Simulated assay, not measured.
Amino acid sequence: MEAASSPEPTTFVLLHGGRHGGWCWKRVAALLRQGGHEVHTPTLTGLGDRAHLLNRSVGLDTHIQDLVATFTYEDLHNVVLVGHSYGGMVVSGAMEAIADRVQTVVLLDAHMPYSGESVFDLNGEERAAAMVALAEEHGDSWYIPPADASRYGVTDPADIAWANSRMTAQPLKTYQDCIGATDRVWSHSGMFIECVPSSLEQHLLARARARSTDDPRFHYRVLHTSHNAMVTDPAAVVELLFEARSLAGVDSSEVPSASL
């Protein structure tokens, strides 16, 4: 991988999705750091390298507090904030507290909730019921067991083995909890990146696509790689992150859409 270049050093905060951890951004973070950028890849409570903290009380608010704390204790400002998949829920909630420190929000094949919605609301009743059943059968009724990376479209055997050795369980509560206010994320400059093909349900993607394309503050892009784009095409992800950085405050009607 070649180092990523950008006109000036930028601070990036890369937030993982469900059952992942900060580890999944390793390749993207390496490219950004080689280019002289500051990168933070926090891991949410109970997941990844913080799996020892997994318990049934961990919910969406816990994860929102995790992200806000990263900004507070690292004293972060003028950040490009990226949320992948479930991480879009966390980013949307945290923006109520950290929006003034964020330059641009990037939602990578991620949930885009309105106030009062949960992951289960976005997934739909059928998918929600399937996840509850999975937790009841394999997670003591309160957590969802680790996933297989192939479900996310990763096909290289080495990548699958690498990811699967790091996947962890996810508290069911994080998917059931309704988010609070999301006004500030929806009034902020942002980009929604749809990965094609994606492992996310089509109705969920259609909703996120519609929400991003209907709002002039969000710029819609398509990335032709797996849902786990940070693993399967890190260079393309970095390219879009740099584009997102340049779009702060720019109306989407002024910029043509792109597909990688």
Rank of each mutant, 00 (worst) to 15 (best):
R33H: 02
Q34I: 00
E38S: 15
E38F: 02
H40D: 00
L44F: 02
G48V: 06
G48I: 08
R50Y: 02
L54C: 08
N55L: 03
R56V: 08
S57P: 00
L60P: 04
D61K: 13
T62N: 04
H63G: 04
I64A: 11
I64C: 12
A69F: 05
T72N: 15
L76A: 05
V80P: 07
H84F: 10
Y86V: 11
Y86H: 12
G87W: 12
M89H: 01
V91I: 05
S92M: 09
S92T: 14
M95K: 05
A97W: 06
I98N: 11
A99E: 12
D100M: 01
D100G: 08
T104P: 00
V105G: 06
V106K: 04
L108Q: 10
L108S: 06
D109A: 05
M112T: 13
S115F: 00
E117C: 07
E117I: 04
V119C: 15
V119D: 04
F120W: 13
D121Y: 09
E125L: 13
R127W: 08
A128P: 06
A129H: 11
V132G: 01
E136W: 03
E136P: 04
S141D: 14
W142K: 07
Y143D: 01
Y143E: 03
Y143W: 14
P145L: 08
D148W: 04
S150V: 14
Y152F: 14
Y152P: 00
V154P: 04
